[in-house]
Amino acid sequence: MDLAIETLNLTKLYGHKVGCTDICLRVPRGQIFGFLGPNGAGKSTLVKTLMGLLYPTSGEARLLGKPLGDIAKRRKIGFLPENFRYHEWLTFRQLLDFHASLYGMSKTDKKQRIPWVIDKVGLSGRESQKIRTYSKGMQQRAGLACALLPDPELMFLDEPTSALDPLGRRDVRNILVELRAGGKTIFLNSHLLSEVEMICDTVAFIKHGTIIRQGTLDELRSAEINVEMRLEGITDQIRSVLVCIALSLTIKGNTVLASVSREEDIPLLAEAVIRGGGRLYELNLKRSSLEEMFISMAQEGENSAGDY
């Protein structure tokens, strides 16, 4: 498989404090990859490590098939950091010219590419304004323009829409979808789960510096299916069979809430009730939204830890 990002046990420690540990990621080219996790989970540590801002403690990583720090490949990587600031005393056009020079772009490329990115991020007519006069949202668009400059094959975007209004968010989503259609790979670090849900092909969840789940949205959704049943005549036999099938089981009066890992387990739940002599009135299947999955994963282990 042609991978845009590949990490093998990538670890970053700050002394004894864990930044991220044993990160193993395989992101194929041409995808939008969502990277999720609660604050302080290690998201930015991983992004900074991949971008050469932090040095890994151990492990390996390859971007576009080359090891971290490969200068030539950096010409094909765009990055919008989360806590970014640009040279505020420059105009937007001068800023783009400077970043284009850092990418080693020729005058001809600059002439072609700079007007294109200005237009793309919706700042046409504002390019002669100094960055310091830009609103936060406009600065975020300017940052995105800098990341788009080299026509990157791979883009790392750390909270790219946090300062944008809904229209701005839609514009950025459209740009990202368009880039994916052009075969580009996007690593998206975002707290806006609805946005991730809308455009990401695969996602990974990180918690306490470790990746706890990764896969396509469908895979993750089907990793845990919640089933609600209304029935009568619950016996100990039914209960014991249901416990064996379900990952978790809650019984409140005539209502049973069960979580299963596969769709094939759903008819088994119904069968267990019927065979045990119960009467099944209703069976509803509930798929988790990304937000519910996020909350559930973020809280996983925290509650049980709290009981002790």
Binding site: K48, M51, G52, L53, I71, A72, R74, R75, I77, F79, P81, N83, F84, R85, Y86, H87, H99, L102, Y103, G104, G143, C146, F156
Partner: peptide, 14 residues
């Protein structure tokens, strides 16, 4: 401190 350096180091410059 300002974060400007984060926009420069990932570029193809040593």
């Amino acid at each position: 401190e300002s974060g400007i350096i984060q926009t420069i180091i990932p570029k193809p410059v040593r």
